[in-house]
């Protein structure tokens, strides 16, 4: 009997249509035309690649050939899937080298007919772009560090310390997860205004660190600490550490991976924040990047696409580069967090 684990040759579309709503579907590939039923590759990571011992019928060479075939198909599938993800970004970056009329063509050109870097010069000439870049960078950095600290403390306490009212307070905090920013923008503006903090960076720092945007971070940290074996803290307790000591010297260092997840979530959120800066900030020197992008317009309010796209490219590429370098650690970090409900 051929084991189900054995891939028939040419399996290429593993479970493309596997939707969460059809748990009973035994043949997941069947709904995709042309797809062979080859479920085993879904999980065929290297850890499963060693052929199990009970496989006498297939030669090693045949197996390898099949596996190579399957891998090739998977890579082709990944390439195909990449197109809708990569093309817009590619278009954005290359369009910054095009003149306006070429950008607006209904069928986009893949490569500029006559590339020019002129728009990049204008990015810096028209606005204090470097200053705005710095604003975004430092705000995002402060928010990220602040959120990590605040969320780690709160997450730890909610997970580990059995103080009365912990549940109620946790639910109170969680409510922040449920409030769309459009709902609270007007009252928040009134609060910020009554505190005299319009056109300062305070609302962009304090509200994200303490308010609704931090809730997800608190949630992630709490889940992590819940999953962290208590025994790890016992040793510290034996050494005479108090609660703070345990938190600082044991729990926090152990939570590096969860903190990494929190950091990237938070940084991205702050980096891309749009509505709030527009509402709170009014002078160009205080602007953040997403807001600054909207300022590259011609005399009649029409967008200068090439300059906007050049500026957008400048804001996206560094973040992508960081992700490219840090992603392995990031994913592995997340894998070890208690991101499990």
């Amino acid at each position: 009997m051929k084991s189900e684990v054995m891939p028939p040759a040419g399996g290429n579309h593993p479970g493309a249509e596997r939707s969460g709503g059809r748990p009973g579907a035994e043949r997941p590939g069947a709904t995709a035309p042309g797809a062979q039923n080859e479920p085993s590759m879904i999980l065929g990571g290297p850890r499963q690649d060693r052929p199990p011992p009970d496989r006498p019928h297939v030669s090693r060479a045949g197996l390898r050939a099949r596996r190579r075939w399957a891998r090739g198909s998977l890579i082709a599938l990944l390439l195909l899937l990449s197109i809708p993800f990569v093309f817009p970004t590619w278009w954005m970056a290359t369009s910054s080298l095009k003149p306006m009329s070429e950008i607006l063509q209904a069928v986009p050109t893949v490569w500029p007919q006559d590339p020019t870097f002129e728009a990049y010069g204008q990015v810096f000439a028209l606005q204090p772009f470097a200053q705005q870049y710095w604003n975004s960078l430092y705000i995002a950095a402060v928010v990220t560090i602040g959120t990590m600290l605040v969320a780690a403390m709160a997450g730890y306490a909610f997970a580990r310390i059995r103080f009365p009212g912990a549940n109620a307070l946790f639910v109170l905090v969680l409510a922040g997860l449920l409030v769309p920013s459009e709902v609270t923008i007007v009252p928040l503006f009134r609060i910020v205004n009554s505190l005299g903090l319009i056109d300062t960076h305070w609302p962009l720092i304090v509200i994200p660190v303490l308010g609704a945007p931090a809730v997800l971070a608190v949630f992630i940290m709490r889940q992590f600490f819940l999953a962290l074996p208590v025994e790890l803290e016992e040793a510290g307790r034996m050494d005479g550490l108090g609660r703070w000591g345990i938190f600082w010297r044991i729990a926090l260092p152990l939570s590096r991976s969860a903190l990494g997840a929190v950091a990237i979530f938070t940084f991205l959120k702050s980096w891309n924040l749009y509505l709030e800066p527009i509402v709170y900030l009014s002078s160009k020197d205080n602007f953040t990047l997403p807001q600054a992008l909207t300022q590259y317009v011609d005399a009649y309010g029409g967008p200068m696409w090439n300059v906007q796209l050049a500026a957008t490219t400048l804001t996206v590429l560094p973040v992508l580069a960081v992700f490219l370098v840090a992603q392995r650690q990031f994913v592995q970090g997340l894998a070890h967090t208690g991101l499990k409900g």
Partner: peptide, 23 residues
Amino acid sequence: VTFETVPFEDYTTTLTTQLAGGN
């Protein structure tokens, strides 16, 4: 006198928020 540029797309939104927010 200061002249404050609000992006065209969000102009009325921002103006309304400033009015509603008492500023």
